[in-house]
Simulated assay, not measured.
Amino acid sequence: MLGVSHADETLRVSSQKNSLQVLLQAAGELDDVPYPLEFAAFGAAAPTAEALAAGAVDIGTLGTAPFVFATAAGTGLKTVGVVRLQVTPTAVAIVVPEASPLTDAASLVGRRITTTRGSIGHYLALAALRASGHNGGDATFVFLQPGESRSLLANGGADGWATWDPYTSMVQLEGGTRVLVSGEGLFAGNMLLVANPAAIRDKPAQLRDFLHRVGRAWDWANAHVEQFSAIQARQSGLPLEVHLRSNHYSKPRRVAVDDALVRDLADTARLYRDEGVIGPGFVAEQQVDRQFNEAPEVQ
């Protein structure tokens, strides 16, 4: 059993908008943890990656695209766990106003797309343009945080918004928008549990135990969708229907750091290199650590 006598045994976890902490608390996975746990809340992927790289936190969640964007800058972060989602038509999507004349990805040429730089939304917009025979330079990107992007689309300052759940569920339920391009076939559904080198070196037992807790927590959430969604809604302030919609379809589950994940990282990096978002040098296999895949739980 892990001891708790030294402060450096504390596992510091980044939880975007408290989402990971809420999940673990709801599933009972914060009970009887054999080491100190601390959570830090961040509003988006970029500050999460910065905190991980700076050593302010040990482990946190990032999407594939923000992870590639961050690690291409040489942060040394590695994927130690994977949560894989079912990719639904609105898990990641480009949404447009209901009355928009746009009909497909090709019609985004010459238009203004708002998204967050380096995000999965940014990746989707680039992938959709390339799949239609174009590239990112054929549209104008306006990089903002999700709340600002949402406002920009609503007031006519952008023609499309490339975003992800829960924002896609929110706008679908609110009405007035429609999905122009779905992430189906363009997004692999991987959410990454990312650690920095110091945590991997100094806290492997804590990381191992924590990853098992995350896996069990998602199993619980998938078996208790209504209960979990109600807990999320109380925490987020969003309508219950937003979380119900997202949880019912996405069915997140922890999987091994596998070859499919490495291919996803390589594909994402290739697109970002081709579009000039990152420079050369990203090697997908070097950005993962598979030692936690089958490790035993802490007793």
Rank of each mutant, 00 (worst) to 15 (best):
G136R: 01
G137W: 07
F141R: 06
L144H: 04
G147N: 11
E148L: 05
R150W: 03
R150E: 05
S151P: 02
S151D: 10
S151F: 03
L153F: 02
A154C: 05
N155D: 13
G156T: 12
G160Q: 03
G160T: 11
G160K: 02
W161V: 00
W164K: 05
W164D: 00
Y167R: 11
S169Q: 15
S169C: 01
S169I: 09
M170R: 14
M170I: 15
G175V: 14
G176N: 13
G176D: 09
T177R: 05
R178D: 02
R178K: 14
R178G: 01
L180D: 04
V181I: 14
V181D: 06
G183L: 14
G183P: 05
G185L: 09
F187P: 00
F187S: 03
A188Q: 14
G189N: 13
M191G: 04
L192C: 03
N196E: 04
R201H: 10
R201A: 12
R201E: 15
R201G: 03
R208N: 15
R208M: 07
R213Q: 13
R216V: 06
A217G: 06
A221N: 05
A221W: 04
N222L: 03
N222K: 09
N222H: 05
A223S: 09
V225Y: 08
E226W: 11
Q227W: 09
F228K: 01
F228A: 08
F228V: 15
F228Y: 15
F228P: 02
S229P: 13
S229V: 12
I231S: 08
A233R: 10
R234Q: 11
Q235I: 02
S236I: 08
G237M: 12
E241C: 08
E241P: 00
V242N: 00
H243Q: 12
L244C: 05
L244A: 01
L244T: 04
S246M: 15
H248C: 02
H248Y: 10
H248D: 07
S250N: 15
P252Q: 09
P252Y: 04
